[in-house]
Structures are given as C-alpha cells and as structure tokens.
Simulated scan of single mutants.
Amino acid sequence: MIGLWDTTGNEVVKALAAERRNAGGVASGMALTLIVVVDEKRVREAEAAATIAAAAHPCRLLVVVRSDVDRDRNRLDAEIVVGGRLGPCEAVVMRMYGRLALHAESVVMPLLVPDVPVVTWWHGEPPDEIATDFLGVVADRRITDTAQAADPIEALRQRARDYAPGDTDLAWTRITPWRTLVAGAFDTTEAQLTEAAVVAPPTDPTAALMRGWLRSRLGIKPRWERTKEFPRMREVQLRCANGDELTLTRDDSMAVFRRTGQEDRLLPLVRRPLGDELAEELRRLGSDQVYAEALGAFAGLTNLDRRSGQRVHVWKDPSTARRAEAGVTAHNSTSTVS
C-alpha cells in the first residue's frame, strides 16, 4: 500500500504504475474500471462491497470521496492498493477537498484502464440528474440505489425521467430472486394471469419495480397493498383465469410458495450482501431492456430503452445553488420583518 498526502493526479498515476511493477502485475487482465462515488462515512461499506465484486470481476477500482467543496484550498489525498486488502484488483482511494472535488474527472480520467468498459456506482443518495456528474457521463454503465434516497419512490420516478440505456438501480437487483421464483411458478401451467398484488411498505422501491415488472410482462396493473408491519416487500399474490391462486411470502431467509390444490413449498429467498448485488450488476455491461420496461411501466413512461445512450455533461455548481437558496431565504426573512 502507498499513501500520498496532499498530492497531485500525476503523482497518483506514477505511484500506481510503480506499485503494479512491485506487485509483479498481480491485477493484469482487468475486465472493467469501477468508479465508486461515496461519502467519507460510508467508504468502508463501499470498499467491502467492491472487494466481493472484484473477486468475480477483476477490475481497477477508483473510489472517489468528495468533501468540503466550499473549502478555499484544494487538496488530494490518495491511497493505492494493488492485490492487497481490497482483493484481486488495482485500487485507488482518492479523497478530494475544495473545488477539486467538483472536478474529480481531472484526476480520474488518466486512471481509467484503456479499452475496457467503465462502470460508475453511487453508494449513497443518487444524483437527480446523472448528466451533472461527469463520472456518470463517462461511464458505459451507471448504478444507483434509490433505497438510500430520502424519498425512495420519488427517486425511482426521477430515475425513469432521467433514464438512459446503461442505467440500473440496486433496488432492481434485489428483486432478482423474487422474479426468479415468480417466473418459475408458471413452468407447470399455461393459465393466463388476471390479477396480481404486492404487499410491501409504501416507501419500498423494490415493490414498485416488482409491480412495474409484472405490468410490463403480463399487461396487468398489480395492486399495491401497503403495510408498515414489515420493513421490506413481504408478499406477491397472483390469480389465474382458471381460479388458481399463487402466493409467494417471505419468511426470514425463506419463501413460502402456496398454490391452489398443492402442498405448500419452502424456497430459498436470502437477502444478499451488497457486494453480491454489485457483482450481479457488473455481469451486464450493456443496456438492461427488462429493467427499462419495468421502470417505465412503474413511472408511466414508454420506450425508455429507445433513448440515446450518450449523455452530454451539464455543469452544475452545488455551492452556487446553495448561495442562491441562502439569498432567497435572507430576502424572504427581510420581507417578513418589513
């Protein structure tokens, strides 16, 4: 491991090359570059998840930690690890302070592995518009997590409005086991599905995407039976035209599958670690058409997968927005006093 304090982008590039030589090319044959955008308080979580994902997908891991963008003095601290505690990858953890944090691409771009896909993952509240973050514009695939937003359902709607092919969300990844079990329930029947319902908390984005997936696949509008009794999606209920009812109910790490005229069955439905969810999304480096259709069905938007996959960077200075907001607040306060 090499630690560089108050350094420059050029020094980081040189140090990474030197560490690769010292390690004897441990991380050759990389499949992609994974850029992780994360706050300081969640760096360890992101590193743990990326380590699991890197075991399945050898990559160059670039962790970008932005802090204190209003600071007068710019500063870059970097930690370089090759084939060490972060698994079989080349990792650079970069902490950026001051205005440099708003131009992270100036440090990140020279570190991208040539001729391999770039994936950007935001481990935290997703951006409102991905085009305002150059680290999203440069990526072939972009991973967000609406479950971490203050209003997950509205954040999911925003993901639909802002969607471009290559986008995905970990809320979608989390229903892969559910979708597998639901789809498997129809292996032994050709009966048409006429009704469906999802039992889940009102703020659960996985339930919203499950409803969108059922609607896009089956052409029906599932009900959302909202409950606050459970922390996450609890049950999927299906009714067929022949009168059969199918129910899949979560019970800890298992699911109980009930079907009219058959014995109940126990099926695995394990909540996977974040790293396994990330590794699943790294298996697909192109557009996910099924996700686009499910997201569009939930949000009431069509043809999301036909949008352009190229984004144009839109510069946005958060400090300017904060100053403008502070000015409006001060003006309103003055008006009230007058």
Rank of each mutant, 00 (worst) to 15 (best):
8 T>S: 15
10 N>F: 06
18 A>G: 10
18 A>V: 10
23 A>W: 00
26 V>Y: 11
26 V>Q: 09
27 A>C: 15
31 A>L: 15
34 L>F: 10
38 V>G: 02
40 E>R: 13
43 V>Q: 11
43 V>G: 01
44 R>W: 09
45 E>V: 13
45 E>G: 04
48 A>M: 09
57 H>K: 05
58 P>W: 06
59 C>L: 15
59 C>I: 04
62 L>Y: 05
65 V>R: 04
65 V>Q: 06
65 V>K: 04
72 D>V: 14
76 L>H: 06
77 D>Q: 09
81 V>S: 11
83 G>Q: 04
86 L>G: 00
86 L>Y: 14
90 E>L: 09
105 E>N: 07
106 S>T: 15
110 P>F: 03
112 L>D: 08
113 V>A: 13
118 V>Y: 03
119 V>F: 10
128 D>S: 06
130 I>N: 00
130 I>C: 08
131 A>Y: 02
135 L>G: 04
138 V>H: 08
141 R>A: 09
142 R>Y: 08
149 A>R: 06
149 A>Q: 05
153 I>S: 00
154 E>V: 10
161 R>D: 12
162 D>M: 06
164 A>L: 10
167 D>H: 12
167 D>M: 12
169 D>K: 07
171 A>P: 08
174 R>L: 07
177 P>E: 10
179 R>S: 10
180 T>N: 11
186 F>N: 08
190 E>Y: 13
190 E>F: 15
190 E>C: 10
191 A>N: 09
196 A>V: 05
196 A>E: 02
196 A>L: 03
197 A>L: 07
202 P>S: 13
206 T>M: 10
207 A>R: 02
207 A>D: 01
212 G>S: 04
222 P>K: 07
224 W>A: 03
225 E>I: 14
227 T>E: 03
228 K>A: 12
228 K>M: 08
230 F>W: 11
231 P>A: 09
231 P>Q: 10
233 M>I: 15
234 R>P: 02
237 Q>H: 12
240 C>H: 08
241 A>E: 15
243 G>F: 06
246 L>Q: 03
247 T>E: 13
250 R>D: 01
252 D>W: 03
254 M>I: 08
255 A>K: 01
256 V>C: 09
256 V>S: 09
261 G>T: 07
261 G>K: 01
262 Q>L: 11
263 E>Y: 06
264 D>G: 02
264 D>V: 01
266 L>F: 12
268 P>V: 14
270 V>Q: 11
272 R>E: 13
272 R>P: 01
275 G>T: 10
276 D>N: 13
278 L>V: 07
281 E>G: 02
282 L>P: 00
283 R>T: 14
283 R>N: 15
285 L>D: 11
285 L>T: 09
286 G>M: 06
292 A>W: 01
294 A>P: 05
297 A>T: 03
301 L>G: 05
304 L>V: 08
305 D>K: 12
309 G>Q: 09
310 Q>I: 14
312 V>F: 11
312 V>G: 09
313 H>R: 05
313 H>P: 01
319 S>A: 14
322 R>C: 00
325 E>C: 00
326 A>T: 08
329 T>E: 15
331 H>R: 13
331 H>E: 15
334 T>S: 14
